[in-house]
Amino acid sequence: MWSSGRIIRVVIYAIILLFLIWYGHENNPAITLDRCMADPEKYDGISLTVGNEVKVYLVSEDGFVIQQLNRRMPVRGKVKELTPGTRVTISAIFHKEGWLELQDIHIVKHREAKIWLSIIPVALIAFLFFRYFRFHPKHFQFERR
């Protein structure tokens, strides 16, 4: 059985972790497209980086349209090699009329490969872990085999 001190420590750590998650969500100073679109006048002319789940939706003569989750946003600035579906991170200036002026772009490659490749070591380490440690249900803790 766990001592009361151990239970209290677990509760305290869990509370701190939840607080940090909440604090990171509430206070992150990064300027996002959501923030810009919520108050376009305030963020007009401001520089931002858009990179979380951003794909090229279509390519036009003077630029392209990006899609981030359910939002689409035109970007002015010519880039070679762009095709619809390409994952990108862009640095751009926000304009209150609802478009972005491209400053810099990085074409994200191999993202799917990175995700799938990362499953292999997780599985291997999990296998090794459970080979050398076992969970003792009665003590509710891992112990050496």
């Binding site: 151990r6 750590y13 972790l17 509710f140 891992f142």
Partner: peptide, 11 residues
């Protein structure tokens, strides 16, 4: 903190 939490679940 996560490490401290996880270590509580070891002997």
């Amino acid at each position: 903190i996560l490490t401290l939490l996880l270590s509580e679940f070891f002997a």
